[in-house]
Design a protein around this nucleic acid. Sequence first.
DNA 1: ATCATTATTATGTATATACATATTATGTCA
DNA 2: TGACATAATATGTATATACATAATAATGAT
Lengths: 233, 233
Amino acid sequence: MTATARKSFHAIKAEMARRIAERVWAPGALIPGEEVLAVEFSCARATVNRALQELARGGVLVRKRKAGTRVALHPMREARFVIPIVRQEIENKGGIYQFRLLSNRVEKAPLAVTKRLGLAKTKEMLHVRCLHLSDGKPYQYEDRWVNLDAVPSIRNETFETVSPNEWLVTHSPFSQAEIIFHADLADIEEAEILGIDEKESVFIIERLTFVLQKPITFVRMSHPGSHRMVTQL
Amino acid sequence: MTATARKSFHAIKAEMARRIAERVWAPGALIPGEEVLAVEFSCARATVNRALQELARGGVLVRKRKAGTRVALHPMREARFVIPIVRQEIENKGGIYQFRLLSNRVEKAPLAVTKRLGLAKTKEMLHVRCLHLSDGKPYQYEDRWVNLDAVPSIRNETFETVSPNEWLVTHSPFSQAEIIFHADLADIEEAEILGIDEKESVFIIERLTFVLQKPITFVRMSHPGSHRMVTQL
DNA sequence: ATCATTATTATGTATATACATATTATGTCA
DNA sequence: TGACATAATATGTATATACATAATAATGAT
């Protein structure tokens, strides 16, 4: 870096990351204060501050007022991954996307669903099941329950051209969500739909969404066990 | 908000999030420019900028120079989850953590491992296998390969008191990682170790770590299928 | 009309300054 | 010694200003 070059917080952040990675700043160690670093990098304190804050958000640093900034002892680094719409996920991989509506009716939701959404024990909800295909092959089976009180207009939707997921994304935003991943064995019906053998493994993603505490939907999405969910950090 | 109250970017961000959630600003719509918003919220443009940037990072807004800021059409919201050390994960849930070293020796790594790490086809690597327990019950089976060139000092470690994961975390930081989730069926050995039936499902997390392009380690961690990985957003 | 050039504009970033706030360190009194 | 008020301090945030940059819109030449 030349002395005259304008210092960007990106460069400073990178340099700090390097120091942490190469243990110039050891885990647990207290690093210099913002003003000192600002002098060292010959930039404004605000610039150092931004670099430090971003690193802290990434879990590499831990900051506390008055106490100062130290290198995280247990770098509980956060992995960030985007949860795309299935169609995009498939198209990004170069596959041809299709989807098939399996069923779509209003019925009494099972207790397991209403309980997790914090709703009354017995409740009529919209139950939509569909299959997403990539290049004609089953990719994801989606089993969804929608709270009609939260999204009444969904009642008249046929889902012939647009999948329930995309419909909800464009018609009902959410402010809060909980996502759960786990593995399971395919039951007979699921195996049939996904085109795999019964008792093969399936990768399950469950999602609960809310707007301002009000429950919107519960989805269970299952992939064949061969599916890989990849994330970088 | 009173007119005299100092406006924080938090409040502004929250207000904007509300407008998006309640569709005052509809998906795909162009929202006012920073200067206009700064006047509306009677604050500095920098403050508006910070709020907007944070929302954009959250995937709720999409910003482009000159083009302006618009509400994301497909809120590909990013889920952020922390990847804690197993011991912390267990202790956070209130369990008692233990771990058992199953094997620890230098041997020729299988091609599947060297290839994914971008190493020479035949290579001697450290192979460590261990089991993490919660309240005495198998929680995670860890099968790890370590590149001795990257971390030579690990050769003399016995892992009698500290798990390989924690050793690496405190002795060898990484700058890059790739994480893969999927489901599989337990093989005989894995089932035996995890205390589950053969052909039950297992939830697999694989992790590859690097420092500055140099491969450090490949780990395959398997949980019984009943394990839940939860994340909020 | 088409293409390359230039102007315009919204966001992106850097800076100095000022004040806010959380937390630790210090000092005082009982 | 201990409890409690007070000072000191590092980070957190707000602001005005200035300039950088990317992308579009306008312009002009061919």
